[in-house]
């Protein structure tokens, strides 16, 4: 009888109970530590950056170092980031969509398609700085349209290479979700494969394709390493895509180590703007798919 009493009142030996509680505590603390890092980053960016967020930062050029009291901002850097991300999207999205159509509609499980998928996931894991080196070798070191050197084009090319695998892999997933019956129905009505692909498959996958493209845009708009020595930086407005071009991310890097407090302040404010752009694009992409 004593045995049963013990079973009922004290199901586990002390050691096992302590082990359970101890491990739970460690696990929760570890998660809290990870969250603390995230919250600290977000909190600090907004605490330091928000006070400097005035209208003039969007409309003016960075003031020369050491000069205070004049309007100072990073309108040109926003211009550069938007320009280069847009060119990158123009280069990589059409190519990405066609490759994704190949993977989901034609290649499917064939050896070629498997290799394409494999190469795409390898390409998405290539460090972004190596992609920058590639763009440097292909465009900065070459003479294009009588111009040799750092340019928005080189930066956009690097961003396009980074975007391509993300776009291909996410659009392929989107196309695979279109029910097979819709393709059969389209073919049964006499459509050829081009009509089926563009009018039926792409049309019904459009929201998730948009999501994939937006996620890729969000990812590359924060990239710094591939722009450092392809687009470089500039203190003036953009007049030509074959000139050194400023971007928000490179500006944050350049000003982060500055001895002038007003430049550091500008770096924090630019961080708020860049983070806002990235998180908004992320959020937007989630909203598009949720509506369906």
């Amino acid at each position: 009888m004593a045995f049963f009493d013990r079973q009922l009142t004290k199901p586990l030996p002390l050691g096992r109970t302590l082990f359970s509680y101890g491990m739970s505590a460690i696990a929760v603390l570890s998660t809290a530590l990870a969250l603390m890092a995230l919250l600290s980053i977000l909190f600090e960016i907004f605490r330091q950056g928000l006070p400097g967020l005035k209208w003039e930062v969007f409309t003016s050029l960075p003031a020369p170092a050491g000069e205070t009291g004049v309007p100072s901002g990073f309108g040109n850097a926003i211009q550069g980031t938007v320009l280069m991300v847009a060119i990158a999207a123009l280069l990589s999205v059409p190519l990405g969509i066609l490759t994704a159509i190949y993977l989901s509609e034609i290649g499917k499980t064939s050896a070629t398609a498997t290799i394409v998928r494999f190469v795409m996931s390898i390409l998405s894991a290539v460090p972004s700085i190596v992609v920058g080196v590639f763009a440097y070798a292909v465009i900065v070191l070459a003479t294009l349209f009588n111009y040799k050197g750092f340019s928005a084009l080189a930066g956009a090319f690097a961003l396009a290479v980074i975007m391509l695998p993300i776009v291909v892999l996410s659009i392929e997933e989107a196309l695979k979700l279109v029910p097979q019956q819709q393709r059969f129905a389209s073919a049964a009505l006499g459509a050829n494969s081009i009509q089926t692909t563009f009018k039926i498959v792409l049309a019904s996958a459009l929201p998730s394709i948009t999501t994939g493209v937006l996620l890729a845009v969000a990812r590359v708009s924060g990239e710094t390493a591939p722009l450092l020595f392809t687009a470089l930086f500039s203190q003036s407005w953009i007049e030509n895509i074959l000139n050194p071009t400023p971007s928000l991310s490179v500006m944050i890097y350049n000003y982060s180590g500055s001895p002038f407090p007003e430049q550091t302040q500008l770096a924090w404010t630019a961080s708020v703007v860049l983070l806002g752009m990235v998180l908004l694009t992320n959020l937007l992409s989630r909203l598009i798919t949720r509506k369906r």
Binding site: I41, G257, V278
Partner: peptide, 23 residues
């Protein structure tokens, strides 16, 4: 919780670096 931890991945690394220098 899972969403927040994965949110770290979407913060541009130059911003994490800025936080690294000053915090």
């Amino acid at each position: 919780l899972g969403f927040l931890v994965e949110l770290i991945a979407s913060i541009p690394s130059v911003i994490v670096g800025l936080w690294g220098i000053f915090v």
